[in-house]
Write a protein that binds this DNA or RNA. Structure first.
Lengths: 110, 110
DNA sequence: CTGCATCCACTTAGATACTG
DNA sequence: CAGTATCTAAGTGGATGCAG
């Protein structure tokens, strides 16, 4: 087994797969990233339309976390009405193989 | 975008990536599957040692769900003391590329 | 050794209302 | 349009004890 022992911000032991889960895990993040990855750049509301059932609060929250982890980029236009665009960072794009694999597996094993 | 519209058991819309998340998502499942995938067959307690911090309750629960979804196989030996072995099913092994990718990404982007 | 049931603290997410 | 704050209901996981 080659998974190295790692430690999270609380000093708890983790293996590297747990780090990945911490970054892209949860109900919404994979789907958010999937859409940003396939569509390129999306405004807040456009993105929201791709996520049936997500609440306003959840979307902001998830986006903020993804931004903090360096996965997505947030570009704000200072205008009225406001306009904000989200896109994947370079680091974010490195996740696409995983997301593609997940998407494909889901389609095949439904 | 080629993600088809799908429906879950409650009639809610899902895209296929959400199904994958539903099956392998959460804090523990990817790590459980990772260990079963790399080590082959593991007894309950041996598996538990690989998951620092997991409680008894959580492990049973996660294993039961994975079994229900056809991802892992449970082999029980009727003896005292009990002995139960877990391993990946064929369907479970099809998840390994995803898990490998997650493991690798985590190691590279820590 | 493996698994289940109960209880309870804690976390999480939804609804709603408000801001620039 | 994009985001924040608060309140609260529901979900989740940990501790513990019991069983085969």
């Amino acid at each position: 087994m080659d998974n190295q022992i790692q430690v999270d911000e609380n000093g708890k032991l983790m293996c590297s797969i747990e780090y990945t889960i911490a970054v892209i895990g949860g109900k919404w993040k994979p789907v958010i990233l999937w859409h940003l990855g396939t569509d390129g750049t999306l405004r807040y509301n456009k993105l929201k339309k791709f996520l049936p059932g997500i609440t306003h609060k959840m979307l902001s929250q998830q986006l903020k976390e993804l931004e903090k982890d360096g996965i997505i980029h947030r570009k704000q236009y200072n205008q009225i009405p406001p306009k904000v665009e989200y896109s994947l960072t370079e680091k974010g794009y490195t996740l696409m193989p995983i997301l593609k694999a997940m998407h494909r597996w889901g389609a095949e094993h439904w």
